[in-house]
Design a binder for these strands. Structure first.
Lengths: 152, 152
DNA sequence: GCTACATAGTGAAGTCACTTCACGATATGC
DNA sequence: GCATATCGTGAAGTGACTTCACTATGTAGC
C-alpha cells in the first residue's frame, strides 16, 4: 500500500501540493470565520454585506444569483442582517414585487471595518514580498484557480 | 473611496493576492464537496473517513480531537456513516467506556476511491509542472500557511 | 474496599446555512 | 384582459455544528 511504485512518476509530490492547498483552504476559512465572528457576523452574512459593498443596492433575486444560493436563503440572511440594523429593505422604484436591499450607515461602518481587517491581513501575509515575488505567486494561484474551474 | 492614495504602498496588490487566496479556497471547497457528494458523502463525513484511513482505528474522543470538533458531533457523524455501512463501532479492548471506530470493508473501498480521485485531481492540476516548479509553489504555500497559523 | 473525581459516549434542545415546494402578489406578452 | 412568468416568503426538512445534563465506567487516595 505504501510502495513507491503504486503511482506514476510525480504523483506523490503533486498530491502533497494538493494537500497543502486543502490545508490552506481550511486555515483560511477558519481565519475568516473567526475574524468575521469578532464583529458579530457569520461568513454567509458577511458575504452578503460584501456583495452590497461592491455592487451597491440590489434586488434579493440578484443577490441570490450573485451569491450562488437560493432566493429563499437570501430572505433568511437578510432577516438577520436587518434585525441587526446592517441592511435596509426598500421598495423597488419600478417593480412592486421586488425589494431593493442596501447597506445602512451601520452596515457601511461594519463593512469598512471588515475591509480594513482584510487589508491588514494581506499586509501581514504579503507585506514583505517584492512586487515581482507577489506577481509570481499570484500568477501561480490564478493558474490553479483557472484549472480548477475548467475541471467541472 | 477609490483613490490610489488611501493605502500604504503595496497594499493594493497584496489585497489582490489575498482575494485570489479566498477565491481559491472557495473553488477548492466547492470542488471537494462535489467530488465527495458523487460518492454519497458530505465533507464532514469524508473527513472522518480520511482520518480513519490515515491513523487507523480510533476512539471517538480521539477522532473528535483530531477533527477539531465536539465529541457529540462525532457521534452524529458516525451514526450516519455506520448506517451506510462505512464504519464499525467495536468495544474498546481495555476501556469499557470507550468505542473503537474502524473502517469496514466498504469504508475502505470508498476511501480508496476518494484517494484515487484526489490523486488524479492532483495530476491534472500539477502534472505538467517540473519538480522544481512544484517545490517552489509548495514552498510558497507553506510559508503562507505558516504565517496564517502564526496569526491567531 | 470505598469514596471522590475525571472521562467516554449519548439524549435533548438549539443555532446557522442551506434546500424544495407552495402560494399570494405583481409584472408582462399578446 | 388573461395566461404566464417572476419576486419574495411561509412551511418543512437536512446537515453540521454547539452546550448541557446524565449514565456508565475508569482511577486515585486513603
Amino acid at each position: 500500500m505504501k510502495s513507491l511504485h503504486d503511482m506514476p512518476e510525480g504523483t506523490a509530490s503533486a498530491s502533497v501540493s494538493l494537500d497543502r492547498l486543502f490545508e490552506l483552504a481550511e486555515v483560511l476559512g477558519a481565519m475568516m470565520a473567526r475574524g468575521v465572528a469578532e464583529r458579530g457576523l457569520t461568513t454567509a452574512r458577511a458575504g452578503l454585506l460584501w456583495a452590497l459593498l461592491h455592487d451597491g443596492p440590489m434586488t434579493q433575486r440578484t443577490l441570490a444569483a450573485r451569491l450562488g444560493v437560493t432566493p429563499r436563503n437570501v430572505t433568511g440572511l437578510l432577516d438577520a442582517l436587518q434585525a441587526d440594523g446592517l441592511v435596509a429593505r426598500e421598495a423597488h422604484p419600478s417593480d412592486r414585487r421586488a425589494t431593493l436591499v442596501s447597506l445602512t450607515e451601520k452596515g457601511r461602518t461594519v463593512t469598512a471595518a471588515l475591509r480594513g481587517g482584510r487589508n491588514s491581513m494581506a499586509a501581514e501575509l504579503f507585506g514583505d514580498m517584492t512586487a515581482t515575488q507577489l506577481e509570481a505567486f499570484q500568477g501561480g494561484l490564478e493558474v490553479v484557480i483557472e484549472r480548477l474551474r475548467a475541471m467541472r
